[in-house]
Design a protein around this nucleic acid. Structure first.
Length: 818
RNA sequence: GCCGAGGUGGCGGAAUAGGUAGACGCGACGGACUUAAAAUCCGUUGAACCUCAAGUUCAUGCGGGUUCGAGCCCCGCCCUCGGCACCA
């Protein structure tokens, strides 16, 4: 009898040993090629759940695989430690956010260590520590210097519950706060923005990154590029200085169908253009529009609303007078905040015109149009009509012709509009990196000098139940002196969006202890960009877009010399419980700890990889984990029983002696290619099949000792990334030198994987009727002859005539009859 | 509404230059071991017909099509998940 597999005993033992020997400490003076593989760092919520492990364990396996393949691998871990939950804990439980966060980190670090990962803890990064946020602030100053950070007043998304503004990206499902689900309202506030829109065009260029199509598409949609033209409509009122209103459109070919013009209610020209008899109605409408929540305003089900303001503008192409309306379906923040209403060829304008009885004039004829009135807007291309000299042109030709004409006449100019808005980074909260700016009555807005960084968070701030920003009411923080004139001045009390912290953490991992800058330039040069990034797709338009912007901005400032932060990206799917995402607030959190205590970390790691394709995620169901545990037990018993078994020096069974190396090399090949493609589930099936086969070999004892050793060693090496503890223990017990994790990934010999015999399938009229084992090299003629001589085949061909024979080499013969 | 991904046994899922559908695992059933149970090991397991065997037929969301041959390709639907959603 062999000793029992006992993960509870061997796992902590090896974890200690590896930590003590620092075998996962990463150095830059390693001659191997570098490989920087990261997974998104976790928010410090307190406990890692099975969803976190689903993200982290397979990425650790992949990093280990690259390591065994001969790369110098950096696979670091850190903590995204600023954010609202810490502050909410302070308000409701009276515990300081710093204490709350650091306690959580301690627990999470313990959990991460129990997973058996190769994280180099010397490189841990925690965003809420002054040594980190000092540099977050430094980057803010750099962006400010470069003109990419600015302060502006605008209508922003405000969450009344969180008492803070939100970025557009943080408003979900038609107007709710991403974090707490409260309906978001509009508020006019002075806020700090980053000019991400300056990079809109370059962010659309994804030629240098190897990312999932899905994420690239989400980013493209979010940036929302559209090419069109800004068209000037004339204003002729003596008491108004403005002489034009510009609208943005992608359909200049429809301009002859413009029967009205609509401004956003907040458009700056609205009040001056409103005639006295419409003033009251217009002012009321504007007020109502402003009071609406985002949900109401964004609802597409709602009937169109709007009011006529009494003024007219002139369509310069046909000289027509066009009435001017305001309506909340026009957004101030997109294009010019004004649109021409072409009801015949735009669904929204059609609804609007129907509602208010405005004329609908067809200018693009649908194919086969009989002259009937339209029952809905016709938005497809067609032949132009009612369009003066452009009549008869196909609309896509007319589009360019009209645009050219307008540019020549000075009526318009081609432009590009983006849906993307600048990134709002101010948060009216305590637990974030303070924005390093000072307000001086004499000098205006003054940046904190670099030498005064960091601007520390005051430990004595008071957390009010109302949820208002504690910094605002903390005199020791607010009151300061102007760095320029030394007069009394006030600090900015807003802190930065935590996405700012995560936009550069992958730079800090290279040199977390560095004091002269955010990173050691030499080390950065060695490691960056990140070769492989893994994480959830929920960050597609937030973290992943912000980080790309950040790196491009730093590149233009000369701080880094590459264009993209993450060369390859892989999105794992989401683990759900009763079809819902796992989260503390939903109370459906499954922790890995009990499973680890019960079956071992190796079993949990492997099970998460086995449940399905990694990018698919799925419902959490632990009923299959026992299968993984049994398999690891079988591996254990197999290897140790092999130690007690005497194999012949020269086996008498040539079949088995051939088959074992073939099976071994086929398994290496399959496992390697699956690893490369993150196909962990099929990789494990292959290892299980290999185990099952080796069990039979062991029972028969029909192979040479040396063949057995080679096969067994391969199994352990292939298993090492997935089940690092078990593999190490068995590696040592089979007499190998420590450590398996410093051994090389096995390579296969293509020659050895080739089958000598195959099963030839015999089909008659496409149906499988017979199977015959033949040499793999069989020719068509040989196969045909062999097949026709089979009794089974003969009986099926009775009374039939073969008209055609299909031969697929190494696969099948299909006899087609009349 | 638009864009993307996906619908395969009781369950998770395999299988794509179109070539044996259901690998691997769970569960279930039967057996061995055990005083018994657990654990472990061995066998069976898509459905229907057939007394057994041999065998036949049907089966990859639905309906058509292409092909010697379709889970895979084409056309038209249905459903699930993810994203966007008055962006002019």
């Amino acid at each position: 009898m062999v000793v029992k597999y006992n993960p509870q005993q061997i796992e902590p033992k090896w974890q200690q040993r590896w930590a003590q020997d620092q075998i996962y400490a990463t150095r830059e003076d390693n001659p191997r090629p570098k490989w920087y593989e990261m997974t998104m760092f976790p928010y410090t919520s307190g406990n890692l759940h099975i969803g976190h492990w689903y993200a982290m364990a397979p990425s650790d396996v992949h990093a280990r695989f690259k390591r065994m393949q001969g790369y110098n691998v950096l696979h670091p871990m850190g903590f995204d430690a600023f954010g609202l939950p810490a502050e909410n804990a302070a308000i409701s439980h009276g515990i300081h956010p710093f204490i709350w966060t650091m306690q959580n980190i301690e627990n999470m670090r313990r959990q991460l260590k129990s997973m058996g990962t190769i994280y180099d803890w010397n490189r841990e990064v925690t965003t809420c520590l002054p040594e980190y946020y000092k540099w977050t602030q430094w980057f803010f100053l750099k962006l400010h210097e470069a003109g990419l950070a600015y302060r502006a007043k605008s209508a922003v998304n405000w969450c009344p519950r969180c008492q803070t503004v939100l970025a557009n990206e943080q408003v979900v499902e038609g107007g709710f706060c991403e974090r707490c689900g409260t309906p978001v309202i509009r508020k006019d506030l002075e806020q700090w923005f980053f000019r991400i829109t300056s990079y809109a065009e370059e962010l659309l260029d994804m030629s240098k990154i190897d990312w999932p199509e899905r994420v690239k598409m989400m980013q493209r949609n979010w940036i929302g590029k559209s090419e069109g033209i800004e068209i000037s409509f004339g204003i002729d009122y003596q008491n108004i200085a403005e002489k034009e209103i510009r609208v943005f459109t992608t359909r200049p070919d429809t301009i002859f169908g413009a029967t009205f013009l609509v401004l956003a209610p907040e458009h700056p020209l609205v009040l001056s253009l409103t005639t006295p008899e419409h003033r009251e109605e217009v002012e009321e409408y504007i007020l109502r529009a402003r009071r609406q929540t985002e949900i109401e305003r964004l609802s597409t089900e709602r009937e169109k609303s709007g009011v006529f303001i009494g003024a007219y503008v002139q369509n310069k192409l046909n000289g027509e007078r066009v009435p001017l309306w305001i309506a909340d379906y026009v957004l101030l923040t997109y294009g010019t905040g004004a649109v021409m209403g072409v009801p015949a060829h735009d669904e929204r304008d059609f609804d609007f015109a129907k509602r208010f009885g405005l004329p609908i004039r067809l200018v693009i004829a649908p194919p086969g149009w009989s002259g009937d009135e339209l029952s809905q807007a016709y938005v497809e291309p067609g032949i132009m009509a009612n369009s003066g000299q452009f009549d008869g042109l196909p609309s896509n030709v007319g589009k360019e012709a009209i645009a050219d004409f307008m540019e020549n006449q000075g009526y318009g100019k081609r432009t590009t509009s983006y849906r993307l808005r600048d990134w709002l980074i101010s948060r009216q909260r305590y637990w974030g990196a303070p924005i390093p700016m000072i307000y001086c009555d004499h000098c205006g807005i003054v940046p904190v000098p670099e030498c005064d960084l960091p601007v520390f968070l005051p430990p004595d701030a008071e957390f009010k139940p109302s949820g208002e920003s504690p910094l605002k009411y903390c005199p020791s923080f607010v009151n300061t002196t102007c760095p320029r004139c030394e007069a009394k001045a006030q600090r900015e009390t807003d802190t930065m969006d935590t996405f700012m912290c995560s936009s550069w953490y992958f730079l800090r991992y290279t040199s977390p202890g560095y004091h002269q800058g955010p990173f050691d330039p030499e080390k950065l040069k060695y490691w960056l960009p990140v070769d492989q990034y893994t994480g959830g797709a929920e960050h597609a338009v937030m973290h992943l877009l912000y980080s790309r912007f950040f790196i491009k901005a730093l590149r233009d400032m000369g701080i880094v010399d590459f264009d993209e932060p993450f060369i390859r990206l892989f999105n794992q799917g989401t683990i759900v419980v009763q079809r819902q995402k796992m989260s503390k607030s939903r109370g459906n959190v499954i922790t890995p700890d009990e499973y680890v205590a019960d079956l071992g970390a190796d079993a949990v790691r492997a099970y998460l990889m086995f449940i399905g394709p990694w990018d698919q995620g799925g419902e959490w169901d632990d009923s299959g984990i026992i299968g993984i545990s049994r398999w690891l037990n079988r591996v254990w018993n197999l290897v140790l029983r092999g130690q007690e078994t005497t194999f012949p020096e020269h086996s008498a069974d040539p079949g088995a002696t051939k088959e074992l190396p073939r099976f071994t090399h086929k398994t290496i090949k399959k496992t390697t290619s699956d690893m490369e493609r993150f196909r962990f589930n099929t990789q494990l099936s292959a290892l299980m099949e290999f185990t099952n086969y080796l069990t039979k070999v062991l029972e028969a004892r029909a192979v040479d000792q040396s063949y057995w050793h080679e096969a067994r060693d391969c199994l352990l090496l292939l298993l090492a990334p997935t089940a690092p503890h078990l593999a190490e223990e068995l590696w040592i017990r089979t007499g190998h030198p420590y450590s398996i994790h410093q051994s090389s990934w096995p390579e296969w010999d293509e020659e050895l994987t080739l089958e000598e015999q195959i099963t030839l399938v015999v089909q008659i009229d496409g149906k499988v009727r017979d199977k015959v084992v033949v040499p793999a090299s069989i020719t068509e003629a040989e196969a045909q002859q062999l097949v026709l001589s089979r009794d089974r085949v003969k009986s099926f061909l009775k009374d039939k005539e073969v008209t055609k024979t299909i031969f697929a080499p190494k696969k099948l013969v299909n006899l087609v009859t009349k």
